[in-house]
Design a protein around this nucleic acid. Structure first.
Length: 778
RNA sequence: UGGGGGAUAGUUUAAUCGGCAGAACACCUGACUCUGGAUCAGGCAGUUGGGGUUCGAAUCCCUGUCCCCCAGCCA
């Protein structure tokens, strides 16, 4: 069992809910097939990890499979190098596509045949407008497009032209194949989307076999359908494209066919996530390559020392939703720490050494001390020997000439514990006379303090790390920090680019660092915790002469953070003053206002409903937006129901039916609504029961009277029957009753709900609450 | 500006039919500690504004505001 298994998903995200529902309903006969469809034109980054975890995760959880498909429909940017890098990264993250490795380029012939079919069906045509022309004819978001002069070419001519496009008779850009969509569509994507373009380019897999290439919007849905994908999950910016997705498959496939769902892509603070920008950082040498440990690429994170398990844990913690969001970098770092905490052995390293001489330790002596690799709270064991001698090094920052309040490290005249070893006392501070810099500490050690806990007399000290001078291993340590100085580098000031916000201190190379002897033969890729510093990994740049360590992530340091007064993680936060909200009186719709201006009859109704029926403007407005609704309202009143009740029900419930109905009539008549209102007015049914009745009416299940009779809503419960129900409900929830009695009175609503449900809505909630209070306070 | 999507603690998210606003990260207190780490205990903090329906609204109705996406022969 891994750590991941312990973090149980207590609720499903909306996509998993859809998958679960489709399994339940048998839509795909229980099959679940997802896919991760990268284009091989760049390296994968942490944002892709979210998508990979989603797609492969769903497949695993629901007993399905996830395909790895390269969406390679653009010969000009794609390359085998990327294919290999992507496969390596997905595998490294711990996912397995089994034998389901696919390439859209393998479907080229099929795409082509389908395209001919669309032409023959009169659903696609060859357009000979140039790029600029197409743009012109497409219109804008507010103006409809116009048909291209080539839109009505005969089918035979389209077919001929399209075949000659394939045969290579035309130069790039001469013609395109377009879908016959809807030039007036509000969704710009549907204004005759391009399906094929001519590109005389060599494709990294198909070579020069083709000179026409399909567009994403056309190739993607067909690829999904060919592979039998059930749930095609992509990011939010493709929401508009779903219309083409559906258009394509509705024309070429039968249900059950794949369907597309969209979720919000990941944004992380202090980094960028667009392939274009990452490519720029690499090509313009702002970083050392795709796998620079500062990069948010999977390759970069791997080199940095992040673990697949840590990244997966992160993905689980951030969840999946449709809200655009920016995740704080701490969430990622914390997931990595949580993973590393249990798997990285603790060792000692001194990054900025300060020499210490133990004046009472014989110069010719040395000893080997046993040191645990793991702290008490980690359920692992193992030790190594560390050498101690007269001269050693400690961390410069573990000594202070003028210690601040609360200092538990070394200071003149005071003691500190050397981790795994003795207490030492600082007797003398040697400084460089020229600079005043501390160059050496002369200390005495307490030979009796080995393995003994600090006593009451001996003040509590930090156990600091150290290395013996004669056995210290010099290494290079690379400390990494955030790549950018601002949380959102995509948001730039006038005249600047994201590159103006690069953090000049994103890497700090320390070549004076010393590590303990046990690390002398450390292997590339092994991870350690340098006690009190952070987690580190041996980098591939290491040589036989010198090891190189990357800092994966540091350790929180509450003391230093507090001293510095830095409030970590929210230093940029401003106290945003809440604007006093404008008080808007009333809420009259402009649209209906216009309708009444245009139609005096409506305006008169509006006025008279207020004057003679006593409706408020807010009640009168929604029912006087169209003659149809007015007529419905007046017809309902003829039953003798009160205007107020009918108006409220129309406003809150019936208007939705008018809006949503597909065709023809409402499922009930105005007279039915009037009858319902009368039942409410007379107190014959409770409002709770009225809701039930209305729901039945809306479902077309008869008149109010019939429904009341059928459901027995006219029967009333005696007080003693109700009391019994109340007691039963309370008896089932003893914990909640106790909570209520100890002050959590908001539980009354929950109790009420329970009782109301038990009565099937027949009870009066006010009476229920009265009885509940009596019982609860008894 | 037309269309599409979105808004719940500082952040990411949960809340079944309208019925307990819950968690994680961050932050603050304390305990413990041979890591100022980890762990444990406690705390601060929220439904985008206004109005309505209801015994009861994050959820339903009306009306504002803000954010994102779409006018590539990229994906």
């Amino acid at each position: 069992m891994t750590e991941l298994d312990f973090e149980r998903r207590e609720s499903m995200d909306f996509i998993r809910e859809i998958v679960a529902r489709d399994i339940q309903s048998g839509r795909y006969h229980g099959r679940v097939v997802t896919r991760f469809p990268p284009e091989p034109n760049g390296y994968l980054h942490i944002g892709h990890a979210k998508s990979i975890a989603l797609n492969f995760g769903i497949a695993e959880e629901f007993g399905g499979v996830c395909h790895l498909r390269f969406d390679d429909t653009n010969p000009e940017t794609e390359d085998m190098e990327y294919v290999e890098a992507i496969m390596r990264d997905v595998r490294w993250l711990g996912y397995d596509w089994q034998d389901k490795l696919f390439f859209a380029s393998d479907y080229y012939e099929q795409f082509y045949q389908f395209a001919e079919q669309l032409i023959v069906d009169g659903k696609a045509y060859v357009d000979s407008l140039d790029e600029e022309g197409i743009r012109q004819y497409r219109g804008t978001v507010t103006e409809p497009g116009r048909p291209s002069p080539y839109r009505d070419r005969p089918i035979e001519e389209n077919l001929d032209l399209f075949r000659r496009m394939r045969a290579g008779e035309f130069p790039d850009g001469a013609h395109v194949l377009r879908a016959k969509g809807d030039l007036a569509a509000a969704n710009m994507k549907m204004r005759d989307p391009v399906l094929y373009r001519i590109r005389h380019a060599t494709h990294y897999r198909t070579g020069d076999d083709w000179c026409i290439y399909p567009m994403y919007d056309y190739a993607h849905p067909i690829s999904d359908a060919i592979e039998g994908v059930t749930h095609s999950i992509c990011t939010l910016e493709f929401e508009n494209n779903r219309a083409i997705y559906d258009w394509t498959l509705d024309n070429l496939y039968e249900e059950p066919r794949p369907h597309q769902y969209e979720f919000a892509r990941l944004n992380l603070d202090y980094t960028v996530m667009s392939k274009r920008k990452l490519l720029q950082l690499v090509e313009e040498n702002y970083v050392a390559g795709w796998d620079d440990p500062r990069m948010p690429t999977i390759a970069g994170l791997r080199r940095r020392g992040y673990t697949p398990e840590g990244i997966r844990l992160f993905c689980k913690r951030i969840g999946v939703d449709k809200t655009n969001s920016r995740v704080q970098i701490e969430v990622l770092e914390n997931a990595i720490r949580d993973d590393l905490n249990a798997r990285a052995p603790r060792v000692m390293a001194v990054l900025r050494p300060l020499k210490v001489t133990l004046t009472n330790y014989p110069a010719d002596r040395s000893e080997w001390l046993e040191a645990d690799y793991w702290p008490r709270d980690i359920d692992k064991s193992g030790t190594r020997q560390v050498p101690l001698a007269r001269e050693l090094y400690i961390e410069r920052s573990d000594f202070s000439q003028n210690p601040p309040e609360g200092w538990t490290r070394l200071a003149p005249g005071s003691e500190v514990r050397l981790r795994h070893a003795y207490f030492i006392r600082c007797d003398e501070v040697v400084t460089d006379p020229a600079t005043g810099e501390v160059v050496e500490l002369r200390c005495s050690y307490d030979p009796d303090s080995l393995g003994k806990p600090s006593t009451a007399e001996r003040r509590r000290s930090t156990a600091i790390q150290w290395v013996a001078a004669n056995h210290a291993v010099p290494v290079e340590v690379r400390l990494y920090d955030r790549l950018f100085t601002v949380a959102n580098p995509d948001e730039v000031e006038e005249g600047k680019t994201f590159k103006d916000y690069l953090n000049p201190k994103s890497i700090d190379v320390i070549d004076t660092a010393l590590v303990e002897l046990s690390l002398a033969q450390a292997e590339v890729g092994s991870r350690y915790q340098f006690v009190r510093h952070g987690y580190f990994i041996v980098d591939g740049d290491s040589t036989a002469q010198k090891l190189v360590f990357n800092r994966i992530v540091d350790l929180p340091d509450a003391f230093t953070a507090k001293l510095a007064g830095v409030v970590k993680g929210r230093e940029a936060r401003q106290e945003t003053e809440k604007q006093p909200s404008e008080v808007v009186v009333g809420s009259i719709s402009e649209e209906r206002e216009r309708a009444r201006t245009a139609d005096v009859w409506l305006a008169e109704k509006y006025a008279s409903f207020m004057a003679t029926l006593g409706l408020t403007p807010e009640q009168a407005d929604p029912i006087t937006g169209s003659r149809e609704v007015v007529a419905f309202f007046e017809a309902a009143l003829e039953t003798g129901a009160s205007a107020r009740t009918v108006a409220n029900w129309i406003n809150n419930e019936v208007l939705r039916l008018f809006r949503d109905r597909r065709d023809g009539d409402l499922p009930f008549s105005a007279a039915d609504l009037g009858e319902l209102a009368k039942l409410i007015d007379s107190g014959a049914v409770t409002t709770a029961a009225a809701k039930t009745i209305y729901t039945e009416m809306a479902a077309g299940n008869g008149s109010p009277q019939q429904i009341v009779h059928r459901l027995g809503l006219d029967q009333t419960l005696s007080e003693s029957e109700l009391t019994t129900l109340v007691q039963q409900v309370l008896a089932k929830l003893p914990d909640k009753v106790a909570e209520y009695r100890s002050g959590k009175v908001s539980l009354l609503g929950m109790f009420t709900g329970q009782v109301m449900r038990a009565t099937g809505g027949k009870a009066d909630p006010r009476q229920v609450q009265e009885l509940l209070r009596r019982q609860l306070e008894a």
